[in-house]
Each structure stands twice: as structure tokens, then as C-alpha cells.
Amino acid sequence: MNYSSAKPKKLFLNCIISAMKSIVPKGIFLTSLFLIISGTAFSNDCYTINGESLEDNTNTRPFVCFPHDEHNENAGLDDNCARCHHVYTDGQLMPDESSEDSSCSECHMSQEKPNDLDLIVRYHKLCRSCHLEEKKGPITCGECHKKP
């Protein structure tokens, strides 16, 4: 793991890492982790997952650097966390609820047949649909998946 944030967080993250390593297959673990970080860490930092520690990114594009706070500020989201961290119940969007405490994979990945692609696709759709709607922000592959 390589992230450019402050040291104390490293300990905390390592705990999560080891905890998750025991329960989730490796590739999925890393993807989920990334989502958890960006969802829960509330940091200004740009989180990237370095290729070295990954064995399965030979086929995929470089991982995305997502500056959470900067993004929200630019997007004027203020405290509208639910715009991204949404909650659906029986197919209905719950406008007053948000889900920043849970990981995306809880809803968006099949527990029986976990597949990285499920989350990747969700992520693409979430970002791109909003960017297209707002006519702001990156939409093509390379704009997010920047070459290191």
C-alpha cells in the first residue's frame, strides 16, 4: 500500500487490511479497500493504490486517484454525501439516508460470485453519469485512470 497521507492512518489501515485479507479474496479485497478508503477516510489526500502490491492490475487501467474533499468542494456537494453514498431500499432511492459507513461492495457485489468488474462498473456509472449530467469533470478513460 502506498498512500500519501499522514502516518497514524497507516496503522489503522493496516488493521483493516489484515482483517480483510483473511475473509476476502485478494483482488476483490484491494478494490473494496479502495472504495472503503475513499468512502470513509474523509481526507483531502489523493488515495492511490500502487501497482507494485497488486498482482492483478496487468489487465486493468491504472488505479484512480480520487481527491475526495477537493472533488466535493469543486462539485459544491457540501454535506450532500448521499449524492454518491446513496441508499436504495426496494429499488427506491432514499433521499434522506446515506451510506458512507458501509462499503460499496456490500450492495454492489454478489456475495456468491464476487467479481471486481461489478464494482468497477458501478464506479464508472456513478462518476460518469453525474459528470455528463453536470457537464463537468472527466468522462473518458484516461482522465481518471491517469498513467503514473
Binding site: 489487465n59 486493468t60 487501467r61 468488474l117 468497477i120 462498473v121
Partner: peptide, 8 residues
């Protein structure tokens, strides 16, 4: 990969 993702 970039195309398979689109099919997905």
C-alpha cells in the same frame, strides 16, 4: 479490458 468493461 477497456472494451470488456463497456460490455459489462
Amino acid at each position: 479490458f477497456g472494451h470488456v468493461v463497456l460490455w459489462k
